[in-house]
Write a protein that binds this DNA or RNA. Structure first.
Lengths: 358, 358
DNA sequence: ATGAAAGCGCTAACAT
DNA sequence: ATGTTAGCGCTTTCAT
């Protein structure tokens, strides 16, 4: 008997169209359809147009599984994360997905607990089950030796968000140190001399960077960074609040506090509120990130705008380009940041008084 | 020549192990390996153990693509969303992924703009590219006719988060109306009589439900809900702040405000702070959701705890069960909620004075 | 510039 | 209880 029975009829309704259906409609071989779908050369314009028409008519979309099995790519990017900031995560996801859409890629998310015993197995499972084409490592996962070595062992491409500069880890970041330097200068320029600083979570690579930028700016103006005016935070609202409590209890208290991220800066503002300390009149506050909340709270927070969406977009771009076989330069790309000077920073009272007198 | 050349040697390093490698190592056929992997019957304990040992030794994980192509499932769940609350989204994702892990399933995320012209194509692309086994519809997507019909057309199973009760949409939710009723009763019991209410975004199904619960509780105590004390919100901090401004400008002002979600309740607190209105002394505030911020702000927000993580978990569970061929009852599952009575609700001043007098 | 044929790694249907 | 065989829908050679 013939080896292809009522196949084509059976396809009428039910399962989605395949490359065979498209080829039949367009009157070409499946290889030509494949060429058109993948934007390859060696197809005449007429045939290409015909195939495209057939694809549109059938609403054809190639099966990612079949492509994965036959080819070498899965059309899947995985994003690994263990980060406390929901807003940060959302922006990143949005950036990655936005890049994925143009190339029929999709984003698989993998929330992790980096201190749990089974993390590496989790990572291995995701990569091996899905054969993902690349992995986006949300900070601080790009600094995790266990995860990094798991990925390298698997031979999976990855791009870290804000990896340590000079660490040779491919990824996307910004100049955290310079940004912190700039923001500190802004505070200094307003006349602040006693500036409190809240460090980020110790496990994040950006934490020492932001601190360094802060300290360098102080020193540029002949001020020695003081331990008393430095508090350890964890990038959470709660830890910012606690740090503010400590910082504002010393005397004389700082006239400004620079927190290593917005969530902590918001915690500082909440504590100041509680204590009746007026912001920015009695205390200036600066943050880092420019989360949605920063622009919405009153007074509006002065902060550093991180290009989070763009970082996600760029990381996905690197990974997809590599999967397509384009040149892969495992380097760190730097994106521009911006100081968002809003309402929480102003000259300190004393400086104000002196200026009036002067 | 023999038809299987140095295949097995070539596999030494490089590509991941396949079912053939496992079968060879265990000395069984690939079908037996498949049976073990899929937990099917008809394998002796000895063989099963041998296969499991081989799997462990090789670090074998079945290729999802191959399984998809051969079988009928993709081991992928997609989550579609267009929701303003980052914290909500994160909890949901965590819930879904947590259920996925036991079954080698993974989560694909698809942020959408439900008012954009191309949404349905986006949905179609995700489902067709990946042949996802199920879709989680984050509210308010479970009420979007266009998305719903696209999914039905595609024959894709879906579970909505908080679909309208009685709408026949399968999913997971809680009794929003009853929860709002309970919270309102709490306010009433404390002596409040003039209670402001901030409605949620008009496009969300829960919005009229929460309002109804509020109104029903008022009426149970002989109070007529008043338009003047009702404000329209959009589930954002900003809209809560604006609503508070309007509500607190009428005279006499309400002694309590019940916001339809936490972000808006936080906006109310921020406005009250700005105006020097003490919470809860001069104004009680209640929210809905129990986001992380609710337990961390001072004073801590009284709110309704939504089982968001559990909803995600359950939705994934329904979808995975269906994909496995288990019984699929396209119904709405109800999960329990809880009142979190914290620090932002207290008897109103006048009531306090009366009690003292009494 | 185009196509034919051979798998990719699995599961399903059917032996045994 | 176990194994054999035929695809799933594509991409990859390799012809033409």
């Amino acid at each position: 008997m013939a080896s292809r029975p009522p196949e084509d009829l059976a396809r009428q309704r039910g399962k989605p169209p395949t490359i065979v259906d498209v080829a039949a409609l367009a009157g070409v071989s499946i290889k030509t359809v494949s060429r058109v779908v993948n934007g390859e050369a060696n197809v005449t314009d007429a045939k290409r147009a015909g195939v495209q028409a057939a694809i549109a008519a059938l609403g054809y979309r190639p099966s990612a599984s079949a492509r994965t099995l036959a080819g070498a790519r899965s059309f899947l990017i995985a994003m690994l994360f263990d980060n406390p900031s929901e807003a940060y995560l959302r922006d990143l996801q949005q950036g990655v997905v936005s890049r994925c859409r143009d190339s029929a890629y999709h984003l698989v998310v993998e929330p992790l607990d980096r201190h749990a015993p089974g993390v590496c197995d989790q990572v291995r499972a995701t990569v091996m089950d899905l054969r993902v084409d690349g992995v986006v490592l949300t900070c601080p996962l790009g600094e995790d030796p266990a995860i990094l070595s798991t990925l390298r062992e698997l031979g999976t491409a990855f791009a870290a968000i804000a990896p340590m500069p000079g660490s040779e880890i491919p990824g996307v970041g910004m100049d955290d140190e310079q940004a912190a330097y700039d923001m500190t200068l802004h505070l200094l320029d307003q006349g602040h001399r006693r500036i409190g600083f809240i460090k980020g979570h110790a496990e994040f690579g950006v934490t020492p960077l932001r601190w360094k930028g802060f300290a360098r700016a102080l020193e540029a103006r002949g001020i020695k960074p003081s331990d008393a005016l430095t508090a350890q935070g964890e990038f959470t609202f709660q830890s910012g609040l606690a740090a503010a409590e400590r910082l504002l209890s010393i005397s004389p208290p700082p006239t400004a506090i620079f927190a290593s991220n917005d969530d902590m800066a918001l915690g500082v503002m909440a504590y100041a509120h509680q204590r009746g300390v007026a912001v920015p009149e009695a205390l200036s506050v600066a943050g880092f990130d420019d989360t949605p909340a920063a622009g919405v709270w009153r007074p509006k927070l002065t902060t550093v705008r991180q290009p989070i969406f763009e970082m996600g977009f760029t990381a996905a771009d690197m990974l997809i380009a590599r999967a397509k076989g384009e040149a892969w330069s495992p380097t760190m790309r730097m994106l521009p940041y911006a100081l968002m000077i809003r309402e929480t920073t102003a000259p300190p009272r004393r400086a104000l008084a002196e200026r009036r007198a002067g």
